[in-house]
């Protein structure tokens, strides 16, 4: 192969190389969310109530303990699971029983879940139980206009009154 032909072929091969790199560096396009859909994210971290209530130690029990460990209350560490139900337009969209974290089961229950829903106006109802009886002691509902591509965050913060709906 003579020199001009070699350089021409080299040019073609380099062109093919950058065409390949340039194309797959940006294309084909990807649709993480289909057109006409929106995203609902249910996400919170909440420490549920303890499975057993705290108990006051008797004087005899306190006397048996080393002086530096004589706490007046005996609080079992294990927490109950958190149960969450999310309904959309009257139908159950998602339900989860989130156990407490930690080896002793005394940590917060955490939930992170992404749900794809059709865009439009929806009525959401969320309920949460954080006690051993399984009673839903927190509930909230909201009608929200979810445009295509929008992301609704449903958070939970007991200190702020329970469920928080944020766009």
């Amino acid at each position: 192969m003579n020199a001009p032909a070699r350089y021409a072929v080299q040019g073609l091969l380099y062109a093919a190389f950058i065409a390949f790199v340039g194309y797959f560096a940006n294309a084909p396009t990807y649709e993480p969310l289909a057109p006409g859909y929106a995203l609902v994210r249910l996400s919170f971290s909440h420490g549920a109530q303890r499975k057993e209530p705290c108990r006051k130690r008797t004087a005899e029990e306190l006397a048996k303990l080393p002086p530096n460990m004589r706490a007046p209350l005996d609080c079992p560490r294990e927490r109950s699971s958190v149960i969450v139900e999310l309904e959309m337009d009257g139908e159950l969209l998602y339900r989860i029983v989130a156990p407490p974290t930690g080896l002793a089961g005394d940590g917060a229950s955490t939930v992170y879940r992404r749900l794809t829903v059709k865009a439009g106006r929806h009525h959401f109802r969320a309920r949460l139980s954080d006690n051993v009886k399984g009673e839903f002691n927190y509930a909230a509902e909201r009608s929200i206009d979810l445009g295509a591509g929008r992301a609704l965050l449903i958070d939970f913060n007991a200190g702020q009154g329970g469920f928080l709906f944020r766009m």
Partner: peptide, 11 residues
């Protein structure tokens, strides 16, 4: 507050 719908992805 939104979810990307179309992305030019680096494959």
């Amino acid at each position: 507050a939104s979810a990307p719908q179309t992305l030019g992805l680096d494959w």
